[in-house]
Amino acid sequence: MRAGLVRDLAAALAGLGLLIALPMLFPQPALRDFLIYFFAYGLMAMSLNLLVGLTGLVSFGHAAYFATGAYAFGLLMQSGLVPIPVAALAAVGGTALIALVVGAICVRLKEIYFSFITLAFQMFIHSIIVTWVGLTGGDQGLRGGIPRPPFLGLDLNDARVLYATCAVVFVLCILAMRQVSQSPFGYTLRMIRDNPARANFLGVDVTAMKLGIFVFAASMASVGGLILALFVSGAYPEFAFWTTSGEAIFMIMLGGMKLFLGPLVGTLLLQTLNHFVTIYTEHHGLVLGTVILVIVLGLRRGLADFLFDAIQARRARRAAALAAAAPAAFAPAPLDGRTV
């Protein structure tokens, strides 16, 4: 067992404990609601960062998989044939399959062209959802609610159980993503990001690696989608619209790409900002736009990255100061010693 894994497990347990404890300390339902949205969008942003930050694949179409997860799960539950865990696994598996097909075409393209083709596929999936009214309900979404029959003694109709289940799933997914990013596979991806030619030269099958992370990231995004579908009891074509992908990118940028959990910081920031700005004004576009401009032009990086860099710089400064101070502080001593 890696030492890192133990630490990750401990961190995950602590995080889960915190997430479970919070609604007990603040029992208002609004906090639970807020956190469930945070889980859903957080998973999308985190998984997108596996592509953007880890592998250097800037996908403009990640929300497509968020949506397929939500739709597949919702449709399976509405069929009434399977229990929740089976529907969830099937939704994730189905999404992985779609991502495998789409990814096999997309990952062959480089840089901006990769971005464009992922966007094209997302718009394609969106138009399928809107057009296939018989299956998806078209623009009106999956109607009639998604049933939540009890399973394994868990009744998800109880808001607290629903929340706790979502929290567990969320933490498990984050942990899985952490393991992937820390694995040799993860380091290969970093190499591909930094120097694909070198990776290729070293015998790495770059295309297969990219496809692998593409499918994994899509699966994780689909978990986010199904959490949201479970919570709002429906799935809507807006999940697959390009604005949803844009928002995920936005969360990553707001939080930062350097830290593993940076996208979560971004998700939290955007959700909080959105929550309060919408309460106070209908001109949230103006406010949000201004905030983004200030962050991008002022900090020139995500907030978590900014803090990270600032801490790094301070440590470096302190180290430098220590190094500089050392002779100054210790120099008189021998002198004193000599005088004594």
């Binding site: 919070l22 979560l264 920031l269 978590a304």
Partner: peptide, 15 residues
Amino acid sequence: SRRQVVGGLAAGAAI
């Protein structure tokens, strides 16, 4: 990162 998450959740709790 862990500290930020805790801080962030506190902000969420403020809601």
